[in-house]
Design a protein around this nucleic acid. Structure first.
Ligand SMILES: [Mn+2]
Ligand SMILES: [Mn+2]
Ligand SMILES: [Zn+2]
Ligand SMILES: [Zn+2]
Lengths: 139, 139
DNA sequence: TCTTTCATTAGACAGAGTCTAAGATAGGAT
DNA sequence: ATCCTATCTTAGACTCTGTCTAATGAAAGA
């Protein structure tokens, strides 16, 4: 039983085979998939699962606060189950692969009071960009 | 003559009335517009300008490195002419207002080698989020 | 088992952005 | 000044990502 499935049960969420496949795929992943990648992999276990169910399920997980929705490039959203671990993201400009990374410093400490323009600042997230090993090799 | 138009000329970029209108609109902007906002405002000066030209022009400016493409919300991309000033962004969760901000530390320094997963990392940008003075007051 | 309520599905729809191919034009050549 | 050609602009079709609808299916409690 995956940790994410357990957390979702606690929300009195009706468990179905489709939801279980999606939750088990997300659980523990430090690479964040798009909805279509999740659909493609889910189809290997459950060929008749629909695109609508994948989107419905992901949106419900986000609404329950158990999964975070990421969007860096204006293309596909990616889904991140690691909501309880404070971290940032490293993205490949070639293929869009998105990984969790951990930094030594809190970026909020680098924003002086006179740069806050009167805002109440609650969150800071860093997006690192570059080329993954595969995309560097491919030129 | 706007500064951005001057910079674009240096790239041997053919100057047309359409491109000039778009460049002059971006130049010096403190808010970052979407393509549709740019189209709408360009139509006030040049009613026959097309959507394709706005997208073509913005994409070319980005390719030339004179404009940056931003995407915070997963909806429309926004275009930022301030590429020569290294900066980050502060976004109001209430109204979406986006401000340029400057930090004391380079976030790249906070990513250790063993957190780079074999990537060649070239860039780091911070997205700060919170409530602007207006939205804090409004509850 | 029965029932109710909620989930799943296919496909239509929508928004943002890209592509195509035909006509127009910037800017160099003469 | 005019011509020429490579490049730009345009309308609208198209793609991609994601949402919605309404008919069918199934989880879970009685
Ligand atoms: Mn993550
Ligand atoms: Mn900016
Ligand atoms: Zn890559
Ligand atoms: Zn605000």
């Amino acid at each position: 039983m995956s940790d994410l499935v357990a957390r979702l049960r606690r929300h009195q969420w009706r468990m179905t085979p489709q939801r279980r496949v999606i939750a088990e795929m997300l659980d523990g992943a430090h690479v964040h998939y798009t909805a279509d990648e999740i659909l493609e992999r889910a189809c290997e276990h459950m060929p008749e699962i629909s695109r609508a169910t994948v989107y419905n399920t992901l949106n419900e997980m986000v609404a329950l606060g158990e999964v975070a929705e990421l969007n860096f490039d204006g293309r596909s959203k990616r889904y991140d189950p690691n909501v309880d671990h404070d971290h940032h993201h490293l993205i490949c400009d070639g293929c869009g692969t998105t990984r969790d990374v951990h930094t030594t410093a809190d970026p909020l400490d680098g924003l002086p009071g006179d740069e806050r323009h009167g805002f109440t600042v609650t969150e800071a997230s860093i997006t690192f960009r570059g080329r993954c090993p595969d995309c560097v090799d491919a030129g």
